[in-house]
């Protein structure tokens, strides 16, 4: 266990050092969520006037929750891109050779994804507050919101890691990205679930991200609903993708 933690520290230090010292990695990670936040809040706020749109905290808070969850999931996906890059450059082989406990490699990437997301989340939160976002919930509610996002970050990281460990090429980027993108956007992104119609309503109703999104919006408006179900889904995703990632690591080990 000590070995694993030591390896994880080394791996996460290296990933975070690259992330924080390289503008090409840092800027897009921060800019994209901010951009979506700006574009959605600025462009679509009129949609709150649609009959049936009932969200007390306002459209800024409504979109903030989506952007927070999106940034969490994508911080994980971007970490997967990094793993694929490490495989292509041969750096992963160096890590595999050096690490006494290879599970530590996985742990290191997961921890670095968490720090990446925490950085982005801090910036997005500050910007949202500057944009006078209304918060109806109390401290416990907000803790619940960020905890949900954290679970999604872990799930996203483990998913992308599993793909990267299996395919070991940067060309796998769409495979990591597209399912996450689709899951996020086939949820009630722009309007509440009850305002979606037709096929998208059907898809959103069974989409696990919908539960996280609705619960998150409940937290920020101070009237949490179905929070327990959302946490259960979050934990379930982590368990499932955790197994996926560990088996991916074993496959990468077997591939040599």
């Amino acid at each position: 266990m000590t070995d694993a933690i030591s390896v994880a520290r080394g791996v996460s230090w290296r990933v975070l050092h690259t992330f924080f010292t390289n503008k090409a990695f840092l800027l897009p990670s921060v800019a994209f969520p901010l951009f979506f936040f700006t574009a959605f809040v600025g462009g679509l706020s009129r949609i709150t006037q649609v009959p049936g749109f009932d969200f007390p905290a306002g459209y800024t808070a409504f979109q903030f929750v989506f952007v927070l969850l999106q940034s969490a999931a994508f911080a994980g996906v971007f970490t997967g891109f990094g793993i694929a890059r490490d495989f292509e450059s041969g750096f992963m082989r160096r890590l595999m050779l050096a690490a006494p406990n290879r599970s530590g490699i996985l742990l290191g990437y997961v921890f670095s994804a968490l720090i990446r997301w925490a950085t982005v989340a801090a910036v997005v939160t500050i910007v949202a507050l500057l944009a006078q976002m209304k918060i109806g919930g109390n401290g416990v509610d907000l803790f619940g919101l960020y905890a949900l996002a954290l679970l999604l970050n872990l799930a996203g990281t483990l998913w992308a890691t599993g793909v990267a460990m299996r395919l070991r090429t940067q060309q796998a980027a769409p495979v990591m990205q597209m399912p996450v993108f689709l899951l996020l956007f086939f949820a009630p992104v722009y309007v509440p679930l009850n305002l979606l119609q037709g096929w998208i309503h059907g898809v959103a109703s069974v989409n696990p991200i919908t539960a996280l999104l609705e619960a998150g919006r409940g937290f920020i408006s101070g009237s949490p609903e179905l929070a327990l179900a959302a946490f259960a889904i979050g934990v379930g995703l982590i368990v499932g993708f955790g197994a996926w990632a560990v088996r991916g690591l074993r496959r990468a080990e077997a591939a040599g």
Partner: peptide, 24 residues
């Protein structure tokens, strides 16, 4: 594939998610 599929996906997402906008 990507230039054909991705815009269609985004179209599907937006057409579904923003349909309520037509009631403005």
């Amino acid at each position: 594939v990507f230039p054909l599929v991705f815009p269609m996906l985004l179209l599907a997402v937006n057409a579904g998610g923003l349909k309520a906008e037509t009631r403005l």
